[in-house]
Amino acid sequence: MKKYRNFPMVPKVVFGQGSFDQLGEILLTKRKHSDAPMIFLVDDVFEGTPLIDRIPLIFNDHVIFISAEEEPKTVQVDALVHKIKNDFNDLPSGIIGIGGGTVLDLAKAISIMLTSKGHASDYQGWDLVQTPSLYHVGIPTISGTGAEVSRTTVLLGPDKKLGINSDYTTFDQVLLDPDLTRGVPKNQWFYTGMDCFIHCVESLTGTYLNAFSQSYGEKAMELCKEVYLGDLMPCEARDKLMMASWHGGMSIAYSQVGVAHAMSYGLSYVLGVKHGIGNCLVFQHLEEFYPKGVETFKQMMHKHDIKLPMGICTELSETDLDTMINVSLGMKPLWENALGKEWRNVATPEKLKSIYSKI
């Protein structure tokens, strides 16, 4: 009999405009005692804004502001875990991430490493985590990455960019408040939303596709098209993009992403390109693999007058280019989903070099 993966899902989720104000009530039942704080990791773009005053701090709860200018790193996780263990006598009651994909991934990784031995880089891979993580909550302030629902936390390590993929990575609670995504800069809104759109394209055309992932992927794709090709009111667009992100993340929970994500990992590792724009930079040149998806993507770019950077790979040394290619080709499940078991016959170093040279 075929054995199917028994993947975890987020067990509790709240959705609705203004639902952030329920956070204190939600956390109250998870507090162990007054000396076990809730640690809030918050995107530093919110420092000094009214949102900080709405965070339900009691006892010795603590806020740590996080810069999302760079991709999250394993050394950053280790440093934050060390700080938390040094600053408090007891393990926290929980870790709450408030921000985009970078902050959410850090929250997931820190909750794992607070109960695991060694370094974060030791757990980059699939199902290497053996100890249940600390209680952790995800609160996205931008929509698209699907980090709020996925079982992975993508990190830049000393020699690779790879997620901690485990049953203990998934958030215990997610709070989806579309109001928190107000004021996101246009380009960031587009790039992060395209992460969701590209999730769907890669999931729906992949060899791992099944009815479970297809049902979520199709809904997320429909919502992305409404948001980026329709003429919705801002309030409705925020609601629908948040739901697209959720469904897009679910679509890859039981399948996988593909070529754009694999190649964007190479860009990120060598050049520090952030995930959303990295996917866009690669995806625009993938007509060979995703012709309909790329056509729709370019329609969305045109409608929102998005101009992608050009020539970012032209000055790379052969060594850097080889590193970029090797990092990308190391993402075996992504290539297998995109191209099947014989993916190495298509995804050659020469093929990847030709695509990178266009970026």
Rank of each mutant, 00 (worst) to 15 (best):
K32I: 15
K2C: 04
L41A: 00
M9F: 14
K30S: 07
L23M: 04
P37W: 01
Y4W: 09
V10W: 00
T29Y: 09
I26S: 04
H33G: 12
V10T: 08
R31D: 05
G16N: 05
G24A: 03
E25D: 14
T29G: 05
V13D: 01
F40D: 02
V10P: 00
F20V: 01
G18M: 07
D21F: 15
K32Q: 15
P11C: 04
V14P: 06
D21H: 14
V13T: 14
Q22G: 02
L23A: 01
V42Y: 03
R31N: 05
L28F: 10
F7V: 10
L41Y: 04
K3Y: 13
K12V: 11
F7P: 01
V13N: 07
Y4E: 09
L41R: 02
L23P: 05
F20G: 03
F40S: 01
K12R: 11
G24S: 08
V42E: 01
D21K: 15
S34Q: 15
V14F: 10
H33C: 10
V42C: 04
H33I: 03
D21I: 08
V13L: 12
P8D: 09
K30E: 13
M9S: 12
G18Y: 07
K3V: 15
V42N: 03
E25T: 13
P37L: 03
L28E: 15
D35R: 15
R31S: 05
G24W: 08
L41C: 02
F7L: 12
G24Q: 06
S34N: 13
Q17H: 11
P37C: 01
S19G: 07
V13H: 06
I39E: 04
S19Q: 07
F20C: 05
K30H: 15
T29C: 09
Q22R: 14
G18W: 08
R5Y: 11
V14N: 08
H33D: 14
L23V: 01
I26C: 08
M9P: 06
F15S: 02
V42L: 01
R5F: 11
K12M: 11
L27Y: 02
N6L: 12
R5I: 13
K30V: 00
K2R: 09
P37D: 02
